[in-house]
Design a binder for these strands. Sequence first.
DNA 1: ATCAAACCTAACGTCAAGTAGAGATTGTAT
DNA 2: ATACAATCTCTACTTGACGTTAGGTTTGAT
Lengths: 126, 126
Amino acid sequence: MQIGELAARADVSHRTIHYYERLGLLTPSEREGAGYRYYNDEALKRLEKIAALKRLGLSLDEIASVIDLYFEDDSGIRGKERVLVILETQREKTDRQIKELTQFRRDIDKNIARMKRLIAEAKGKR
Amino acid sequence: MQIGELAARADVSHRTIHYYERLGLLTPSEREGAGYRYYNDEALKRLEKIAALKRLGLSLDEIASVIDLYFEDDSGIRGKERVLVILETQREKTDRQIKELTQFRRDIDKNIARMKRLIAEAKGKR
DNA sequence: ATCAAACCTAACGTCAAGTAGAGATTGTAT
DNA sequence: ATACAATCTCTACTTGACGTTAGGTTTGAT
């Protein structure tokens, strides 16, 4: 498929795909003759994974440093120790984040309850 | 305390504090004579809360719309219904985020295990 | 053959969240 | 009194993550 279809399927703009390519996040499987980019289904999966990692708060740079883990076959993986360090750092960060989010979630609930109470009171007084 | 001390204690630059002030995120408790900003301990707590909310992925705009919940007394809360909507939206977003993070955490663990296995294998072969 | 749709590169624009610099004023230590 | 550190305002620059515009090929359908 070419860039337009990929963009539509991944729900990103083709400019975003160009941009990701410059950052080394995904490369077309082919650039034949005219220079058109051609992609296979893995590209789509990569884009979906990138979106997922973005939602988790990773920067595109951070994503670039781990994305290949999801797609490279074992034999092709370079610098495994380096990757391991990145992963363990990422795990700590994630744990902290989950903890904070859980607390935040509790705060929200508390505030929702408070708001509802206040609204009810205000209406009662009217 | 003045801006320098506050900045140091909250571990942000004084520029950032100026910037937050422009966004309405915190205001000095005083601007006497020369125009120097003076802050109390609540300002520090506000900055810490802002940092915490930022880590959760809220934008400064979003933070501005909820921060007062943490500091205003009940009587001062404006637009309670509006705030309630914001909070409920935020709760849904948070729930989604927690779910995704938990899955991500599992993926990381899986990848850590894989890396360790590969590293062990590589060392075994040597 | 032609013509619109899809593609290309390259350069400039934008928005959030700051950072940096200039030039002026104020506070404090000697 | 003078230096020098801290602060002030204001403007401009930076970075990340794209979007927009311009001008030029390529391809597919008629």
